[in-house]
């Protein structure tokens, strides 16, 4: 279970570039649930994900995962509990190393690394078996550098790696955004299957309304560093893309109105 309480983050404070990326965000993910975060550019959805992953220090608030307060943990220590897939297909694997070597690194995610040989014969068989389930023919290419794979293949493999050891939390950062439509659909399908099969708790940032409606159990909508809507249970089951779009529209209209009013008032009083 993930509990995010009152977290805030301001980038470049006290400069002209100041960004209030997260403003007092609260979010609790129940065990074995799949939540999507959607929002406009700059809404703070990726920042929220990175806050959980630990890529920066929070200004305020607390993050608890699986009973531990991980707020002060460095990124690499959180990896014991968290599996991650990045937006950039190149980010999640070491390009010059072989498929088998990349997978072996993931099998021991967050564990001590011994001086025993990493890629053994029995391990290769285990890897080949699991990789075969991707139906991409990668089981015959275990010794090829990962850099020779397509973006979709790399992303599918990264997903497999992130979930090889069952993580307490799976973080997906727009992991299909950089793929062609066909690969994106395949990776999305794989994501749903793995999460369902392994009963994972997952948090996914996405640009795709379709994905947000199709895959998860819950949709959280963010805007300007805050959570503005939360579709759960029956709400989520009923929600369709037009509903999401109209919610965005309302928020944006309200904002336009606010700004024009502010300008008006400014003109009157200055």
């Amino acid at each position: 279970m993930l509990e995010i309480t009152h977290i805030s983050k301001t980038f470049f404070p006290n400069t002209p570039n100041e960004v209030n990326a997260l403003r007092n965000v609260n979010l609790t993910l129940e065990k074995e649930t799949f939540t999507a975060v959607i929002g406009t550019n700059g809404s703070g959805k990726s920042t929220l994900l990175n806050a959980v992953a630990g890529t920066f220090e929070l200004d305020a608030g607390q993050i608890r995962l699986a009973g531990s307060n991980i707020t002060g943990w460095p990124e690499y220590k959180r990896a014991k509990l968290i599996g991650r897939v990045f937006q950039n297909p190149f980010a999640g694997t070491a390009a010059e190393m072989s498929i088998a070597e990349n997978v072996v690194l993931a099998i021991h995610r967050g564990q001590r690394r011994s001086l025993r040989t990493a890629v053994t014969r029995s391990l290769r068989e285990e890897v080949a078996d699991r990789v075969r389930s991707l139906k991409m023919g990668l089981e015959d290419r275990l010794d090829n550098p990962i850099g020779t794979l397509s973006g979709g293949q790399r992303q599918a493999l990264t997903l497999l790696m992130a979930t090889w050891r069952k993580p307490e939390l799976l973080l997906l950062d727009e992991h299909t955004a950089a793929l062609d439509p066909k690969s994106a659909a395949k990776v999305a399908e794989l994501t749903r299957d793995i999460i369902k099969q392994d009963k994972l708790t997952a948090l996914m940032v996405t640009h795709s309304m379709q994905q947000a409606v199709d895959l998860p159990d819950r949709i959280v909508m963010m805007h300007k560093g805050q959570i503005i809507r939360d579709f759960q249970g029956n709400d989520k089951r009923r929600v369709r893309i037009p509903d999401l779009l109209s919610t965005f529209d309302r928020v944006q209209k309200k904002e336009l109105f606010d700004e024009s009013v502010a300008e008006l008032l400014y003109g009157a009083y200055a």
Partner: peptide
């Protein structure tokens, strides 16, 4: 980035 995500400092 990859190796940090695999829990290595």
């Amino acid at each position: 980035q990859m190796i940090r995500a695999q829990g290595v400092d």
